[in-house]
Design a protein around this nucleic acid. Sequence first.
DNA 1: GTATGTGAAACGCTTCACAGCA
DNA 2: TGCTGTGAAGCGTTTCACATAC
Lengths: 216, 216
Amino acid sequence: MGEASIPDATAARLPRYLQALRRAAQAGAITLSSEQLARASGTTSAKVRKDLSCLGSHGTRGVGYPVTALADELARVLGLIEGRPVVLVGAGNLGRALAAYGGFERGGFRVAAVIDADAQIVGRTIAGHRVRAAEDLPAVLMGTGATLAVLTVPDASAQAVADTLVAAGVTAILSFASLYLDVPEHVRVRRVDLATELQLLSFYEQADEDLPAAAG
Amino acid sequence: MGEASIPDATAARLPRYLQALRRAAQAGAITLSSEQLARASGTTSAKVRKDLSCLGSHGTRGVGYPVTALADELARVLGLIEGRPVVLVGAGNLGRALAAYGGFERGGFRVAAVIDADAQIVGRTIAGHRVRAAEDLPAVLMGTGATLAVLTVPDASAQAVADTLVAAGVTAILSFASLYLDVPEHVRVRRVDLATELQLLSFYEQADEDLPAAAG
DNA sequence: GTATGTGAAACGCTTCACAGCA
DNA sequence: TGCTGTGAAGCGTTTCACATAC
């Protein structure tokens, strides 16, 4: 019983299941079939069943999956602790928007500190946080216990800041820089880049034009 | 010769190659080996060679790939036209940040219009654009020729706005909403969600803790 | 009857290894 | 000698189909 080892493709879908389940719970749903969950998370019922079977059997044949129990189980597997601290590094336009966006709270995270290298910004208050200087990073991480960082600094300083974060004990980084970050093996980086996403959409738009068949 | 049909996994990497090549060009590089390009884009040399061979042979054995020629070829394959119009729908915190962020320009796109449903925001100027009302959407799309939209509206209205966009002729949407959008088959949606990304990082952090071996 | 859980088949992607060319 | 281009092998993911359980 339990999750021996979860395939990458499955792990990548778990957060989406969790979000769909929480929405369904708010809407008052008690159980959801694999088909319903698939529709709500943009995947297929077969994938849902295979994915969830990795976590042990939580569904009931003929009925479906219990919404709240499964959501709790997913949160546990994902290692989510309500209010887990995240450090936001870079208080420019994007950093400020993310702090105010609600994405952290919705995901069960808490902005523990906001940091910026710009002396003009340090000391200001953003989303209820006094922006702290880059030099304070080790102390801030120590004080908050955060190991997760969101990086919204300019490309030019992204690698240097990443190095500092790693040296200060961060083990996972969500980077909005457009370049690839070179980090030690034990550090996970995920990159989110507007330009990349738009270019990929552009490619598929063009491909669909050339071959005006159905698109996945 | 030419790109008969490009696998999804390859297509997803092309924008990253393009960005790495453009950075290399700015740094004065004339040619890049598959190994160098792999390092700059966070992949492997074998993948680079296989990916680029889909576009026809542009490298020289013993030398590498010509930086500018390959960048041009990639831009062509991705269907990138410098200054291609994109409509930004949702002028809240995140929308304003993205407009000011530089990600559009870096990717070769141009914000053709900013739209919001909130009467309080309509008429204001954001990143040089007078915010227009939701009702103007069809006219704006017609006028600008944009078929690509970036969606940064609240979850509650995301599906309704997506429906409007599709009805007005948009065929590709980059959505920052946390829910799955239901759209016709001919419309491509890519989703970017802070909560999902953080939760996935959280999962891997926990997995690495349990099994403190090397991580990819 | 209905929907899960799961082997097995099918598919696509990655890695390997090396022939071919500059 | 060095690096690309590519068949072939290896691996992970998806899909299928159905036995199983409520």
